[in-house]
Write a protein that binds this DNA or RNA. Sequence first.
RNA 1: GGCGCCGGACAGGCGACCGCGCCCGGCGGUCCGCCGCCGGGUGAGGAAAGUCCGGACUCCACAGGGCAGGGUGCUGGGUAACGCCCAGGCGCGGUGACGCGCGGAGAGCGCCACAGAGAGCAGACCGCCAGCGACCGGCUCCGGCCGGAGCGGGCAAGGGUGAAACGGUGGGGUAAGAGCCCACCAGCGCGGCGGGUGACCGUCGCGGAUCGGCAAGCCCCACCCGGAGCAAGGCCGAGCAGGGACAGGGUCGCCCGCCCGUCACGUCCCAGGUGGGCCGCAGGAGGCGUCGGGAGACCGGCGUCCCAGAGAGAUGGUCGCCACCCGCGACCGGGUGACCGGUCGCGGGGACAGGAUCCGGCUUAUCGGCCGGCGCCUCCC
RNA 2: UGGGGGGUGGUGUAACCGGCAACACGCCGACCUUUGGAGUCGGAGUCCAGGGUUCGACCCCCUGCCCCCCAG
Length: 114
Amino acid sequence: MTGPARLRRSADVVATLRRGRHRAGSLLALHARRREPAAGPARMTVVASRKVGNAVRRNRAKRLLRAAAAGRPWADGLDLVLVARPACADAAMPAVRGELEDHARALDALVVGA
RNA sequence: GGCGCCGGACAGGCGACCGCGCCCGGCGGUCCGCCGCCGGGUGAGGAAAGUCCGGACUCCACAGGGCAGGGUGCUGGGUAACGCCCAGGCGCGGUGACGCGCGGAGAGCGCCACAGAGAGCAGACCGCCAGCGACCGGCUCCGGCCGGAGCGGGCAAGGGUGAAACGGUGGGGUAAGAGCCCACCAGCGCGGCGGGUGACCGUCGCGGAUCGGCAAGCCCCACCCGGAGCAAGGCCGAGCAGGGACAGGGUCGCCCGCCCGUCACGUCCCAGGUGGGCCGCAGGAGGCGUCGGGAGACCGGCGUCCCAGAGAGAUGGUCGCCACCCGCGACCGGGUGACCGGUCGCGGGGACAGGAUCCGGCUUAUCGGCCGGCGCCUCCC
RNA sequence: UGGGGGGUGGUGUAACCGGCAACACGCCGACCUUUGGAGUCGGAGUCCAGGGUUCGACCCCCUGCCCCCCAG
């Protein structure tokens, strides 16, 4: 995976969802959290629940989110969780990129600036 | 030409740039656990799906018997096995190609609402038939005669109810009738002969007058099933804190049998800790080709190929070109015509759906065209 | 992975061993009332969907869809 490294451990995902900042839109929700200490490149994972649809729709949504996330730079020391919404599986790439960029800019101000 | 039936195979192709999982090789770094870069190889389906069946595999005193429970259900075959497949038999539907169904109701229990006279060793509303007939009506040659109400009987042909009502035709018989009797037909049962491995078929004889449906209600018969599941199971590593109860425990239930144990290394409960890695885990009931056996499902021989192995879970993103399908328009060709074919332009479309231990089936979803065989109708020669 | 339960008017629930789908609240319409409320009368159901068994299916069997629960 390019860009951010993969976030593998379940505890890290839960910590990011619970203690991180988040922003949500119609296509996706972005959770972000600074590690302590904030060393190493950003890590990320994508999530799609059963509400998104069947396996094809879930995987489609996750691929779009990965591709979109790989297309922009991320600050070091961040843990990211991208949550797919049902509409994400039907969305086009520019829309996904746009919404992700909005969330990322808003959260950079909160997480990085804090 | 039109409308159909059955079977099979496919699941757009090529290319550019940026990326992903796994494997191999090289280089570099390393705290030796690995990490980074480069190159090469490889990377989803006919249903991968639903999880409805069957097996492989693994573990459980090696699970032996009985009961209970569950499943299957015409016959023969195929298979590792099946609830699957093939062939056959019978029945039903269809003009037909073809499709669908399948043990037993002559072992027992139970159920058949409403309607209807009667619905389970049937029944008599209308009706039919003689008899009585003191009452009523009509006729009268005055003796009676005819019809009806009523009474107690005989009958079950016809009407009518219902999903279903105790065979059909003809004859005899009778007061009227009825398998009451007879012949033939249908159906049932028994027996013989012939064919078939068998389901069953053909044929001959005899019998007794001969009535259902539901077992996807209980049930009977035959056959099958030990249980759990890859979070099976095995190995390595890290970490913690013990306390209490009990004589029984052993992978669904009950009894017997068997095995282990009876003061703890067991079982259960509470509390605490961990929730990491490796194997299982990809050579298989395997794919393709060919030859042989078989009616077929399928089986065997030979050759050849290696074809996903992740573990928060890899196939993506942005485009181009060419085919394919649909709609509209223009032009050309054929035809009296409805219309058909071709070229070009514009617009649109490409489904259902993603491996998670593996395999064989079933079922369900699915845009579109392709191949093969067959049936019916119509037209022409 | 294995097992269990359920889907009935708008909502919450019924229906013996197969025989006319019932109740409460709500909604709609009519009557009554100056209006509203209360009251009276009436109305509305693909019994989740599609097949099958049966004379007949909410009920029995098969297939599919959805929801809930339990164990690991």
